[in-house]
């Protein structure tokens, strides 16, 4: 439980860093660390398959997409970033305060098990569940991936025509 708490606090801190840091590249790196910490939590909650997916895709692929987007757009120069820093701080300085105060509130409220939750059941193996009971999920995933690929194609095709 102590390890879980440490990991959860680390998750919150890194997520705060991802949101508050002025450099977008650092944000992308922080998101990868968030995914890595989430992976550790998933392993601790006995979900190795989802953890491996999270580590390979969310900590590996998505930061690459972010870094590509940041490099291709070059949003702001260092000088402009410094100019916007004060304005950003005025907008974001509330966030740690909100998070800490909500944490204190939740600690005192004591979210408890008064709300009914279903009883524990033992599931089948995840592979059996995926292939035999929920095969439609796989079809949905393939469709979503195709939609993504075609979406990117359409976006860059329009750009080519505009040029």
């Amino acid at each position: 439980m102590i390890v879980n708490s440490i990991l959860l606090i680390a998750l919150l801190c890194v997520a705060l860093w991802a949101v508050m840091t002025r450099s977008l590249l650092r944000s992308a790196i922080a998101l990868a660390i968030v995914s890595a910490v989430l992976t550790m939590l998933m392993f601790r909650l006995h979900s190795p398959l989802a953890a491996v997916f999270e580590l390979s895709v969310c900590a590996g692929l998505i930061p690459v997409v972010f870094v590509s987007a940041i490099t291709l757009t070059q949003p702001l120069s260092t000088k402009e970033v410094l100019q916007h820093m004060r304005e950003r701080l005025t907008r974001f300085w509330y966030l740690p305060f909100i998070i800490v105060s909500s944490g204190i509130i939740f600690t005192f409220i004591h979210l408890s098990s008064k709300m009914p939750l279903p009883g524990a059941e033992v599931d089948k193996d995840v592979r059996i569940l995926l292939w035999n009971i929920r095969p439609l999920d796989l079809i949905g995933q393939i469709l979503i991936l195709l939609i993504g690929a075609f979406g990117i194609l359409i976006i860059f095709k329009e750009k080519k025509e505009n040029e």
């Binding site: 998933m42 909650l45 006995h46 979900s47 398959l49 989802a50 997916f53 999270e54 895709v57 969310c58 692929l61 998505i62 997409v65 939750l117 279903p118 009883g119 524990a120 059941e121 033992v122 599931d123 089948k124 193996d125 995840v126 569940l129 995926l130 929920r134 999920d137 949905g140 995933q141 979503i144 991936l145 939609i147 993504g148 979406g151």
Partner: peptide
């Protein structure tokens, strides 16, 4: 918490695919 960890993993895999796209 509910003992449906295999189902949760299947849902999370789908969620990750949606997230990437």
């Amino acid at each position: 918490a509910t003992g449906h960890i295999a189902l949760a993993q299947v849902i999370v895999v789908t969620l990750i695919v949606i997230e990437v796209v």
